[in-house]
Design a binder for these strands. Structure first.
Length: 434
DNA sequence: TCTGGGGTCCTAGGACCC
DNA sequence: TCTGGGGTCCTAGGACCC
């Protein structure tokens, strides 16, 4: 059986998946008790779409990704509390949850901002469901974040267990699918779209094969499924059968690409504004590079118009390459300006722009070039960048920045309903009384 | 009568995730 | 007026090599 990625193990592995409930909404509730038990949504960047909804908001029929301006009436009528996203807060709360989970097992994969896989293999003689309850209760008490815990012999089954716990409140927030008898009662009732890795397109393809439930997918012929869902689909079947194909990734692999892209708060028609925005995004992505010890081999600058309206449409992009891989802000800014000059077309109403670094290398392993700056000059530039990063670290992001990134920033995203950074800024500390 | 065999690397596009 | 942002993986096909 040709199943790359990870080694195949059977039997003794046990995975736990801890997932924050409506995570961003829960973060907002931790420091604002008035938000308990009321409908609440958190919006995407630019206050565009609903990307997190409390149970009460879900009950009102507000769906993931609903554009805010389309649900505004329902929001008003039902007094739904609305927040712009506050990633500083959510990131810090995520870190607190992770720290708490480390009390329960040393082997953790931080899978996303609100989900972690736990290796529970050594706990097989314990009552796993009871251990799951202990985890939930501790995370709740120490961080204020409610979670659900799914447990299974493979990552895919742990994910499915988590889904089950979320959809069956009577289970108390924990579902253990390590027992195959338990799986027999649950899997036939779960629709195939609940499976990790099965999206819209795969649901349609599986329907043609007559596969609608998770139990049917597990019993399906792996070769037939591979025909339409590739090796990914075949791996899912094995995982559902309890054959582990996906390992716990405790060490974050080196990332392969990096990007900073944003919509504009208002349509941009002036090239100077576009240059500012691209420069600001480039400045940010360069900081991210240095924070991770990486350097960019190339850069794609892009800008495009609004695809949702009748404005004349234009998608522009330009590829730029430095002499050698770099993490230097001024050098990347030079490339970005080149990019804008090449892609800009007068007369369009631009909606979004961004900078993508598709190929990254470790800076200390980069291929050197004859044509780059001399080493002594590079060392000076590195010290300058280190100093700027240190100042911005100490006094807050954006304390000093290249003038090219603009002062007024009329193009900036909307973020009109943002909560304070309760846990990361002294000025924003929550008050117990006024 | 009528053109080999075995590779690698790169890219675009599709699909999926949170 | 108004619709997010940042990632990963897989495959097919083209280009190229000997």
């Amino acid at each position: 059986l040709d199943i790359p990625q990870g080694s195949m193990k059977t039997g003794e592995s046990v995975f736990g998946l801890v997932d924050g409930n409506n995570f961003y909404c829960s973060c907002e509730r931790v420091f604002n008790p008035k938000l308990a038990n009321v409908p609440l949504v958190v919006l995407s960047n630019n206050d565009g779409c609903a990307i997190a909804r409390s149970q009460e908001a879900k009950a009102l029929g507000i769906r993931m990704g609903d554009p805010f301006f389309l649900i505004r009436d329902r929001v008003k009528a039902n007094n739904v509390r609305v927040f712009s996203s506050n990633y500083t807060l959510y990131g810090d709360m995520s870190r607190r949850v992770l720290t708490t989970l480390q009390e329960f097992t040393p082997h953790i994969e931080a899978y996303s901002i609100d989900e972690s896989f736990l290796d529970l293999s050594g706990f097989a003689d314990k009552n796993l469901a009871a251990y799951g309850q202990e985890i939930r209760a501790t995370v709740r008490q120490w961080t204020g974040i409610p979670t659900c815990v799914g447990i299974g012999p493979t990552k895919t089954l742990a994910k499915l267990a988590n889904w089950t716990a979320k959809h069956h409140p009577e289970m108390g927030g924990v579902c253990d699918l390590t027992d195959s008898q338990e799986r027999e009662t649950i899997l036939p009732a779960v629709p195939v779209e609940a499976v990790w890795g099965i999206g819209r397109a795969s649901v349609a393809k599986l329907a043609k094969l007559g596969v609608r439930t998770v139990a049917q997918l597990r019993e399906a012929d792996p070769r037939a499924v591979r025909q339409s869902l590739t090796v990914v689909g075949e791996r899912i079947i094995q995982e559902l059968r309890g054959v582990s194909c996906l390992n716990l990734e405790e060490i974050e692999p080196q990332r392969k690409g990096m990007a900073v892209t944003r919509s504009f708060g208002h349509a941009v028609t002036e090239k100077t504004e576009m240059l500012e925005a691209v420069a600001a995004h480039t400045t940010r992505v360069a900081e991210k590079l240095r924070a991770t010890g990486l350097a960019a081999v190339g850069m794609i600058v892009f800008a495009h118009t609004n695809r949702h309206n009748a404005d004349p449409s234009y998608y522009g992009s330009a590829v730029c390459e430095p002499y050698e891989a770099t993490d230097d802000t001024p050098e990347l800014l030079g490339l970005a300006v080149q990019g804008v000059n090449r892609l800009w077309r007068d007369g369009f109403r631009y909606k979004k722009c961004g900078v993508i670094l598709p190929d990254l290398v470790r800076k200390d392993e980069r291929q050197r070039s004859f044509f780059a700056l001399a080493d002594a000059d590079q060392a000076k530039r590195s010290r300058l960048m280190e100093t700027i990063d240190a100042i911005n670290q100490k006094w807050g992001r954006g304390t000093i920045f290249p003038a090219a990134a603009g002062i007024e920033r009329n193009w900036k995203i909307r973020s009109e309903m943002k909560s304070p950074c309760f846990t990361t800024r002294f000025a924003d500390l929550p008050q117990a009384r006024h």
